[in-house]
């Protein structure tokens, strides 16, 4: 039988969900997809490949290459890049590479 009982705080703290993921797209044909690159881990090779593969599968999709946005870890997520994503009318973005 236990003689000592300790009630302890869980140290992971509170979490707050403030945002919802965007609804998925029913079909990529007719949609605009932006590619955002951090310039790392072969992104200069993987993104053109993904662009080509998607374009072949969805000929009516408009795919905006990564080099039309800011490239780099900080550049890919700054306000100018986000404004450019909106300005280009992107319905979806693919970001990479690695993490």
């Amino acid at each position: 039988m236990a003689d000592v009982k300790l009630e302890l705080y869980d140290p992971t703290g509170a979490e707050e969900v403030t945002q919802s993921f965007a609804p998925r797209l029913a079909d990529l044909n007719g949609k605009t997809i932006g590619l955002l690159s951090d310039g790392l881990f072969q992104a200069h090779r993987t993104f053109p490949l993904i662009q080509g593969l998607l374009q072949k599968r969805f000929p009516k999709a408009r795919i905006i290459p990564f080099n039309e946005f800011g490239v780099g870890r900080a550049e890919m997520e700054n306000e100018q890049t986000m404004a450019r994503v909106v300005e280009k009318g992107c319905d979806a973005v693919i970001t990479g590479n690695a993490a």
Binding site: A2, D3, K5, E7, S20
Partner: peptide, 16 residues
């Protein structure tokens, strides 16, 4: 759903 969640406390025991 959006919102804040706070973790519950945990309990441990021992003979001393």
């Amino acid at each position: 759903t959006k919102g804040k969640t706070t973790p519950q406390k945990v309990t441990v025991t021992g003979k001393d």
